[in-house]
C-alpha cells in the first residue's frame, strides 16, 4: 500500500518526534514543577524565554540552533570535541529542533496540571514521613498524570509537524532528516509528483487523526478511572 520511501519517511518522522518528546519530558516536567510550585527572581523572564519558540519564526529558532550547536558554535564545538557528537544535518539534530519547538507546549500543559494538584495533599504526605522526592513521585506526579499525557501528545504532534527549524538546522537529507513535512514540501516543489504529494498529505492527516484518537482514548481512560473512584 505504501512505498518503501513513504515507509522510510514515516519511520524517520516517528523516530525524530519520539526522541524529541522523550528528550524534553524530564527537563519539561522539572521546569513545569519549578514554575508551578516556586516563586523566584526572574520567574517572569524565564516564563518569557520559555515561550519564545512559540512566537519566534521557526527559521529563527533553527538559525539560533545552528549558531549554538553547529560545529563552530559555542556549545557544538565542545560537544564535538568532548563526545564526538555532531548535531546539524543529522536526524538527532532534527529531534533537537522538534524538541525545542515543542518544549513550551509540554511545559504549559504539565504546569497547569501540576498547579491543579492540591498542595495540602503534599503537606499531608510530608507529615507521613515522605521526603520531597517521594512526595513528588507518589503524590504530585500521579495526580498530574492526565496533564502529562496531554502535554506529551501535544509535544509529539508539534515535533512531528516541525518544518522551519528542522530544515534550517538539520536540512532536508533523504533517508536521514527528511521527515513527513519536508518530504511533502519536496514533492510539491517537484513537477509531476502531485499524486505522490497527495498521498503524503493523506498520510499526514491519518497520522494526525490517529494521535488525536489515542490522546482522546487515554484521556477518557484517565477520566474513567477517576470516575470509578468517585463512585
Amino acid at each position: 500500500m505504501l512505498s518503501a520511501a513513504e515507509w522510510q519517511t514515516i519511520a524517520i518522522s516517528l523516530k525524530v518526534a519520539g526522541t524529541a518528546v522523550a528528550g524534553i519530558l524530564p527537563p519539561g516536567v522539572a521546569v513545569a514543577w519549578l514554575m508551578a510550585r516556586h516563586d523566584f527572581r526572574g520567574k517572569a523572564l524565564l516564563d518569557g524565554v520559555l515561550h519564545l519558540p512559540l512566537v519566534l519564526p521557526p527559521v529563527v529558532v533553527g538559525y539560533l540552533l545552528l549558531l549554538a550547536l553547529g560545529r563552530q558554535g559555542w556549545l557544538g564545538h565542545w560537544l564535538d570535541r568532548l563526545f564526538g557528537i555532531t548535531l546539524p544535518f543529522t536526524w538527532q539534530g532534527a529531534a533537537v529542533a522538534g524538541g525545542v519547538m515543542a518544549f513550551p507546549l509540554l511545559v504549559r500543559a504539565v504546569r497547569l496540571s501540576l498547579e491543579a494538584v492540591d498542595v495540602k495533599l503534599e503537606a499531608a504526605a510530608s507529615t507521613l514521613g515522605a521526603g520531597r522526592w517521594r512526595v513528588f513521585f507518589t503524590i504530585t506526579l500521579p495526580l498530574a498524570f492526565p496533564g502529562l499525557v496531554t502535554g506529551s501528545l501535544l509535544a509529539f504532534a508539534r515535533a512531528l509537524s516541525e518544518f522551519g527549524a528542522t530544515i534550517t538546522f538539520a536540512a532536508n537529507i533523504p533517508g536521514q532528516t527528511r521527515t513527513l513535512p519536508l518530504a511533502l514540501y519536496t514533492l510539491i516543489q517537484t513537477p509531476g509528483r502531485e499524486a505522490a504529494a497527495a498521498r503524503l498529505c493523506a498520510l499526514s492527516i491519518a497520522i494526525a487523526m490517529l494521535s488525536l484518537l489515542v490522546s482522546e482514548w487515554l484521556a477518557r481512560r484517565a477520566r474513567h478511572r477517576l470516575q470509578e473512584r468517585d463512585g
Binding site: A125, T127, A130
Partner: peptide, 30 residues
C-alpha cells in the same frame, strides 16, 4: 527539622486522603 523527619502524626480538618490510593494504600503510606 522538616515535617517528614519529625515523626509527628497530623490529622487535618479535611481528611486529606490521597485520591489515587485505595484506603489500604492510604493507611500504609507512612
Amino acid at each position: 527539622v522538616p515535617p517528614h523527619r519529625r515523626r509527628l502524626g497530623v490529622v487535618f480538618q479535611e481528611a486529606r486522603l490521597f485520591p489515587h490510593y485505595r484506603v489500604r494504600g492510604n493507611l500504609t503510606y507512612g
